[in-house]
């Protein structure tokens, strides 16, 4: 039965080259733990067939940290929680440029400027529009931005200002979202994602697994993502942050993380699937396993307020796996 299911999934994605149905994904999510390596192996094959061997490397920078009015229960940058992360103002241009140069030196093709805001005010918009061309022209990196909920006018201005990709995460399913965010709703997030597409920017729309959502809610999230069809999906795993409501949750187990990386690849065969925050504490020594379970991009080095692996370890890993570093925007 299990063998037959994996064969059928492989036939659909590799021979018929069609997307899996919701029922097929649900069946795959129920495979026993012993079959996770086989599921991961199929996901790797699907990734190679649909996306190729390249891996996109990106650096990110929190250019304005903390003091966010929203109450995302996983986030140490919310002003509503007693978090040890101190709010700091918008970095100056030299600081942002120095961080971008660090990223470029590692062979990355993307650099994302992230701001802890509900949405950009006019002063923030002006700073972003000033920074994007400077960073792009000085480093040759594609510049992505993450600045919260956008209006139609703001999305148009960012697209016109050279923003290559805009990040706005769904994080979780519509049915689970109110359990982790109460200051804005799921539809507002979807609306911003649609505006990003409307104005021609690439859409980066990530998830955060391990907040207490059920298997059914992860499948629901996958369905929403398939409808949205983002260019990139960063896969984050909860890293419980001191002072936040989710600080008491335990990180996802590594095998469960690998299972869901594989399921995301099977559900989104041509999407850039990026290793993102929390992978260090979730997968521990199994970092290579994610890269052979469907991942084809990664955030290198540190994150917004936490630290990542030594970039050289990840670059060596890619070399060992014979996965060339490349930009995927135009490949997929």
């Amino acid at each position: 039965m299990t063998r037959a299911l994996l064969t059928a999934l492989g036939d659909a994605l590799l021979d018929e080259r069609r997307q899996l149905t919701a029922d097929e994904l649900a069946a795959a999510s129920a495979l026993p733990d012993a079959e996770v390596p086989a599921l991961a192996s199929l996901a790797h094959e699907v990734r190679l067939a649909w996306c190729g061997p390249e891996v996109e490397v990106e650096g990110i920078l929190s250019a304005k940290t903390g003091g966010c009015p929203e109450d995302c229960h996983f986030c140490s940058q919310s002003s509503q929680f007693d978090s040890p992360v101190k709010a700091t103002p918008f970095l100056d241009t030299d600081e942002v440029l120095a961080a971008a140069r660090e990223t470029a030196k590692l062979g990355a093709s993307e650099f994302c400027i992230v701001l802890a805001v509900k949405g950009p005010d006019e002063r923030t918009m002006e700073r972003i529009l000033e920074l994007v061309p400077i960073v792009r022209d000085e480093t040759g990196l594609n510049v992505a931005v993450s600045a919260g909920i956008l209006t139609d006018d703001q999305a148009g201005r960012l697209a016109g200002g050279g923003v290559h990709r805009y990040n706005h995460n769904l994080e979780t399913s519509r049915s689970f979202f109110p359990k982790v965010v109460t200051t804005h709703d799921y539809q507002e997030r979807l609306d911003t994602c649609e505006l990003v597409r409307k104005h021609g920017m690439e859409l980066c729309c990530g998830v955060l697994l391990g907040m207490g959502e059920s298997v059914e809610q992860r499948l629901e999230l996958l369905a929403d993502l398939r409808a949205l069809d983002p260019d990139e999906v960063p896969v984050n795993f909860l890293n419980p942050r001191p002072g936040t409501p989710l600080m008491i949750r335990k990180p996802l187990g590594p095998l469960e993380a690998i299972r869901w990386i594989a399921l995301f690849r099977l559900a989104l065969p041509r999407t850039i699937l990026r290793y993102a925050g929390g992978r260090e504490i979730t997968l521990r020594e199994l970092q290579a396993a994610g890269l052979t379970s469907g991942i084809n991009a990664l955030i290198v080095g540190n994150y917004l307020t936490t630290l990542g692996r030594d970039p050289q370890e990840d670059l060596q890993l890619l070399q060992d796996l014979k996965m060339p570093v490349g930009s995927l925007s135009k490949v997929i």
């Binding site: 890293n239 260090e280 307020t305």
Partner: peptide, 28 residues
């Protein structure tokens, strides 16, 4: 010592005061 793994320092080791921390790809 309660600093989680993969976190930069949040408070000054000398005085216990709050630190303003800037994290970038290659350091902090």
């Amino acid at each position: 010592g309660c600093l989680p793994a993969f976190d930069p320092p949040r408070y000054c080791a000398d005085c216990g005061g709050w630190l303003a921390v800037r994290v970038s790809t290659g350091g902090w």
